[in-house]
Each structure stands twice: as structure tokens, then as C-alpha cells.
Nucleic acid binder design. Structure first.
Length: 323
RNA sequence: GCCGAGAUAGCUCAGCUGGUAGAGCACGCGACUGAAAAUUGCGGUGUCCCCAGUUCGAUCCUGGGUCUCGGCA
């Protein structure tokens, strides 16, 4: 059996503020594991409070990967994450440890667990800017029509006003001369997977978020943002689209109040939680869900023990499921 | 107590000369293959404060009541 030779990977997913950090730390300790972060906001140095980054003390007990690995001015991407994550996982396997891929960035997790092979065309900022300008003048729909002529299959899958995705598709087509829809590949992931989903009832999640936002401010979120701005981190950088940072920048500039910032953060975080649920669905048969309001870590651990000792793919339905 | 304004979706409010109602936000559901904590599509919701009257028909007009807000006492 080919599958039996595949190295194991534990994936831990769930919405923001569900408690992934705490649980995954305990699990990694229990199983002598290391954590690979699958969170698009934890790469950046100096963005700690607003991103709810695991504390240094927490990271001391278990090795962490892909946290604090770049400056806030850098732009990450799906492909870069995929490569870095694969590297980190491989090195963990190489020294005989169990890797835990932990995070809430749905697209990034999927890329790993579903073996996505995005088109190999890197972003072209100049072309993107050009297309953005064109969209401003002629409207996003016009670009979408253009895409529809070049690649109807891609256009059908992208909402006509979704400029981001329309531009990416056009970018790939222009730079390769081939259709975008024909350049998205998919392989079997090279791991034996166990995906664990952590959840809590929405109302609980929402009130945890509210409490967390309050704590962020007491812990100095405004100072953190002030520091970033003073270091020349422009609010335009992708890293600054992290929830709360621009809101805090507005407070610092006297454009809004702290209460307004908090309220905005509460709203946006709730919307974020709902969007995350689109990637991690309770109905997904490949995810083993645990409601942290009513399960103990012991139950999760025994699931992982069973997985680790079984050596088979019985836990992993990803392989069988086509889509 | 008097005068004025108001009472419509969970919230803030819109509703032309009477034909049982709508926008934003919230909330729910979806898409996502090198910017993803990004970007984006779809959706439901209502004793139109209560009672009576006029009318073929009242959220809208008339009378009464209740409550809220402001001003004056």
C-alpha cells in the first residue's frame, strides 16, 4: 500500500478565537510534535497583539514554524506558504517528530491538505496596477467580460464584480498565453492526514471575540500599531489588512474613537468567523469535529493516538473523496 | 401639567396624492488554486404602538388611548 508509507500530518482547523493555540500546544506536547502555523498573519514580526500570536513562552515549550519569519512590509502568497509549509513539515519528519499544521487561513490549509497546484505565475504588480486603473475607469464588469472572452470557464466561476480574482485570472492568461482555468492543478497530498476541527457555538465564539478585543487594547494594541506606523509600515501593506490595524491607525490619527475601532473589530471578526466556516464546514466528512464546550482534550488525544498507531488511512477520507 | 415631535425588520431610519412596505448595518448561506484576517455572490425577517371611525380598501386620513424624546412650567 502506497498510503502506508506516507508520513503523518495532523491538521488542526477552526475559527478564530475558538482556542486552537491552547489546544494545539497541549497536543504537540503530548505527542512530541512541532507546530507549523497556517495563519496568514503570524508571519509578520512586530504584529503580535492584534493577531493573537502565541506568546514567546508558549512557543518555547514546543517548536513553532512560520511565525515571525518576515517583516510586515513583505507580501506573502499562497504559493510561498505552500512551499514553506512543505519544507517545515519535511524537516519535522526528518527528525522524527509529529507535525501539527495549525491555523485559520482556509485557503492555505486547503492548499496543503488538498494538494493544490496553483499556476506558477508570480504576481505582477505593474500589470495588476494597470488592470486596477482600467477597472476604475471602465468598471470591474468590463474586465470580467474580457476574461469571459479569453477564458469562459474561469469567468463563469468568478463573480463579475470580484476584481481581485478577475485580475489574477487575466494576469495568468496574459503572462502565459494560456487559459487560467487549465492551469490549476491538484495532486494527492503527500501525507497521511488527520484533520481535527475545533468549534464552539456561534454565540460563545462571538463573546470570546468581544473579550479578546478588549484584552488586546489593555495589552497595548494601540502602541503596537503606533510602533508599526513609526517604522514606516504603511496602512496599504497587505499585512496591515489584518483585522484591527487600520482601525487603530485611524484612532491614532484622530479620525475615530477607540470605541468605534472596537465595534468595527467586533463586526469584522464575526464576519471573518463566518467566512472561515466556508472553508471548514461542519458537514465536511474529512474533518473530525470537537466542540470545545463539550469535549475534553482527552478525547482529542485518543483520536490522535488511534490515528498514529493505526498506520492506515481509515481516518483520512480526503483520499477517497474526489472533490 | 402644558406645548411640540415621534412610535415601521434585531438596530438606525425611509416610505410620493390611501392599494397590506424598503435601505444600510446586523444576522444566515455560498464562492475562493501565487494579495485570503483579502476579494466577492445570494437570502429571510415585520400584529407598520393599541382601539375605534371614514373608506371597496388604512402604515398613511379622523378621534381616543399608551409609551418615548425635547421644550415650557
Amino acid at each position: 500500500m502506497v498510503e502506508q508509507s506516507l508520513p503523518p500530518l495532523i491538521v488542526i482547523v477552526g475559527p478564530t478565537a475558538v482556542g486552537k493555540t491552547e489546544v494545539s500546544l497541549h497536543l504537540a506536547e503530548e505527542f512530541d510534535g512541532e507546530i507549523v502555523s497556517a495563519d496568514s498573519r503570524l508571519f509578520y514580526k512586530g504584529m503580535d497583539i492584534g493577531t493573537a500570536k502565541p506568546l514567546l513562552e508558549e512557543r518555547a515549550s514546543v517548536p513553532h514554524h512560520l511565525i515571525d519569519v518576515s517583516e510586515p512590509g513583505e507580501t506573502w502568497s499562497l504559493a510561498r506558504f505552500q512551499q514553506e509549509a512543505a519544507k517545515a513539515i519535511a524537516s519535522i519528519h526528518a527528525h522524527g517528530k509529529l507535525p501539527f499544521l495549525v491555523g485559520g487561513s482556509g485557503q492555505y490549509i486547503h492548499a496543503v491538505t488538498h494538494g493544490w497546484m496553483p499556476p506558477i505565475i508570480p504576481p505582477n504588480p505593474i500589470l495588476r496596477k494597470e488592470l486596477e486603473t482600467q477597472a476604475e475607469i471602465e468598471g470591474a464588469e468590463r474586465l470580467h467580460e474580457e476574461l469571459n472572452k479569453l477564458d469562459p470557464a474561469a469567468a463563469e466561476k468568478i463573480d463579475s464584480r470580484n476584481l481581485r480574482r478577475t485580475i489574477r485570472a487575466l494576469e495568468v492568461i496574459r503572462l502565459t498565453g494560456r487559459k487560467f482555468s487549465e492551469q490549476r492543478g491538484r495532486l494527492q497530498p503527500p501525507y497521511r492526514l488527520l484533520t481535527i476541527g475545533l468549534t464552539r457555538p456561534r454565540p460563545t465564539l462571538y463573546s470570546r471575540v468581544d473579550a479578546r478585543i478588549e484584552a488586546m487594547f489593555t495589552n497595548g494594541l494601540l502602541d503596537e500599531v503606533r510602533g508599526l506606523l513609526e517604522n514606516g509600515i504603511s496602512p496599504d501593506f497587505p499585512a496591515m489588512t489584518s483585522i484591527g490595524y487600520r482601525d487603530c491607525a485611524a484612532v491614532l490619527q484622530g479620525k475615530s474613537t477607540m470605541e468605534e475601532a472596537k465595534a468595527q473589530m467586533r463586526r469584522v471578526t464575526r464576519v471573518f468567523i463566518r467566512r472561515q466556516a466556508n472553508w471548514f464546514k461542519l458537514s465536511d466528512p474529512t474533518i473530525h469535529w470537537f466542540d470545545l464546550e463539550q469535549t475534553t482534550e482527552k478525547e482529542i488525544k485518543s483520536k490522535i493516538y488511534a490515528f498514529r498507531d493505526s498506520q492506515s488511512n481509515e481516518f483520512d477520507t480526503t483520499i477517497q473523496t474526489g472533490e
